[in-house]
Amino acid sequence: MRIDISKFSATMFGMVLGIGGLGAGWRAASHVWGVPGVIGETLALTASAIWLIWFSVYILKWIQAPEAAMAEIVHPIQSFFVVLIPMTTMIAAWSIALYLPRIAFGLFICGVAGQLAFTVWGVGGLWIGGRTTETTTPVLYMPTVGGSFVSAIACGLFGYPDAGLLFFGVGFFSIIVMESVILTRLLAHGIPVALRATMGIHLAPPAVGSVAYLAVTSGPPDHLAHMLFGYALFQALVMLRLIPW
């Protein structure tokens, strides 16, 4: 059976985001609570393997179906999922850092640079204007908030906490800006059923932000870390309330 490479979407990299994030969390739990570390290592390496497969497929898409690849880049909603590629590149980097440090560092640099470049390009497009209400969804969080927080975490893990603080600042203030835009759309117009799955992204900013803050600071969690985590818990409760919706 022939596979239509043009149907491959950058959203597939979300698998790496989930598995790699779980692996990183399990690694931390193995140090704090003594849970079996092999589970975290297996998850981390699995995420890296999936990233390599999807990255190869995505390159192949640009070679065999460049029109479809470009259409995804310029799509008002799908384009913001493309930032998952540099984000998961950073996740792959810290997942293999213990085993292949030089390769991991190279992936880290490429991931941070790619995330920053894509975010600047994407936000610049937003500032130009012309965006409709229908295309204003929680996906807007992806580059400025999600991408910046992952860059902050990566910088902290690779020994550059000061640079990580810069990315944390981008993500933190973008939460305030983007949430006001998205809530305005939700309050006035709601969101169609086909796009309601993107509401799950609304939970991520404060949760990932708290992890990013801990990655670029030292010592026990302070007031800001608790505030971010508390807002994440509040968002989770709102999501539970929206299940019947």
Results as ranks from 00 to 15, higher is better:
residue 132 T to K: 14
residue 132 T to L: 10
residue 132 T to G: 11
residue 133 T to N: 08
residue 133 T to C: 05
residue 133 T to F: 03
residue 134 E to M: 09
residue 135 T to Y: 05
residue 135 T to F: 05
residue 138 P to Y: 01
residue 139 V to P: 00
residue 140 L to T: 00
residue 140 L to S: 00
residue 141 Y to A: 00
residue 141 Y to M: 00
residue 142 M to V: 13
residue 143 P to W: 03
residue 143 P to E: 04
residue 143 P to F: 02
residue 144 T to H: 00
residue 144 T to Q: 04
residue 146 G to W: 03
residue 146 G to V: 08
residue 147 G to L: 01
residue 147 G to S: 05
residue 148 S to M: 02
residue 148 S to C: 09
residue 149 F to K: 10
residue 151 S to K: 04
residue 151 S to W: 09
residue 152 A to M: 10
residue 153 I to W: 07
residue 153 I to A: 05
residue 155 C to D: 07
residue 158 F to P: 12
residue 158 F to S: 12
residue 160 Y to T: 09
residue 162 D to F: 12
residue 162 D to M: 11
residue 164 G to T: 13
residue 164 G to Q: 08
residue 166 L to P: 00
residue 167 F to V: 02
residue 167 F to P: 03
residue 168 F to M: 09
residue 168 F to W: 11
residue 169 G to C: 11
residue 170 V to A: 14
residue 171 G to A: 08
residue 172 F to L: 15
residue 173 F to S: 13
residue 174 S to Q: 07
residue 175 I to C: 11
residue 175 I to R: 10
residue 176 I to K: 09
residue 177 V to F: 12
residue 177 V to Y: 09
residue 178 M to P: 00
residue 179 E to D: 11
residue 179 E to Y: 10
residue 181 V to I: 15
residue 182 I to K: 04
residue 184 T to D: 13
residue 185 R to P: 02
residue 187 L to C: 04
residue 193 V to W: 06
residue 193 V to Q: 13
residue 195 L to R: 01
residue 196 R to S: 04
residue 197 A to G: 15
residue 197 A to K: 06
residue 198 T to G: 05
residue 198 T to M: 13
residue 199 M to N: 11
residue 200 G to D: 04
residue 201 I to F: 01
residue 201 I to A: 03
residue 201 I to L: 08
residue 203 L to T: 10
residue 204 A to L: 13
residue 205 P to W: 07
residue 205 P to I: 02
residue 207 A to L: 15
